[in-house]
């Protein structure tokens, strides 16, 4: 990977320390991105701890990933047959004064797609949760106003689920008869003027 070993160790140390602060057991720190996994029951308390103990006051974003065996468009996940069907909800928090940042993650069963709202902790979560709710069909109890953000109220389906078909690709399959253009050969590149 691009990260030098020393950086990775530093990041690992930070991730481990942070996970301990918010009472999480599982964490990863690949590619410079720290994921800290918490149980869905501890979602709200973990966010409070992240804000107060971890000093991550800046709410960046909240969204989800649909891990699904049924894929209507795009490429399926690795080892799709043994995939555990689930939603992974991610919430990126960072510090407003230094470069500390984590992605708080939790895993939801598809049957029980429900998660406490973070709106009381981070006011900015309101719109992100509305977006996640309509795009993935995840419920956020405790949200003050969980109505559709983008889509009309009568819209059926949840567009970012993997099972949701993309109309354009149904009409016109991809990649079509023209494949991706060749990369230009690098031998032609010369140093330009100046510098």
């Amino acid at each position: 990977m691009t990260d030098s070993p020393s950086e990775t160790t530093e990041l690992d140390a930070f991730a481990g320390e942070f996970a301990a602060k918010i009472g999480a057991e599982r964490w990863t720190a690949d590619h410079g991105t720290v994921h800290v996994y918490v149980d869905r029951e501890h979602w709200l308390t973990a966010a409070i701890a992240a804000r107060d103990e971890g000093e991550l006051d800046f709410f960046s974003w909240l969204s989800a990933v649909d891990w699904s065996r049924e894929v209507a468009v795009g490429e399926p996940a690795e080892d799709v047959d043994n995939l555990e069907e689930r939603y992974e909800v991610l919430c990126r928090l960072s510090s407003s004064t230094n470069s500390d940042a984590v992605i708080l993650a939790t895993v939801l069963d598809k049957e029980e797609a429900r998660l406490d709202s973070l709106t009381p902790v981070y006011a900015g979560a309101a719109w992100h949760e509305r977006e996640t709710a309509e795009m993935f069909g995840i419920d956020f109890p405790g949200h003050p106003n969980l109505i559709n953000l983008y889509l009309p109220e009568a819209f059926e389906g949840h567009p970012l689920r993997k099972s949701f078909a993309l109309g354009a690709r149904e009409v016109k399959p991809w990649p079509g008869h023209v494949d991706v253009e060749d990369m230009p050969s690098t031998e032609n590149i010369e140093a330009g003027e100046g510098s």
């Binding site: 974003w61 990933v65 795009g74 490429e75 399926p76 990126r92």
Partner: peptide
Amino acid sequence: GYYIVSQGGRVPYRVKIRSASFS
């Protein structure tokens, strides 16, 4: 910011776009 989940293919499995104006 961009959160990219790759599964080893030519296309990403999921791209989350974090744009400034939204927040």
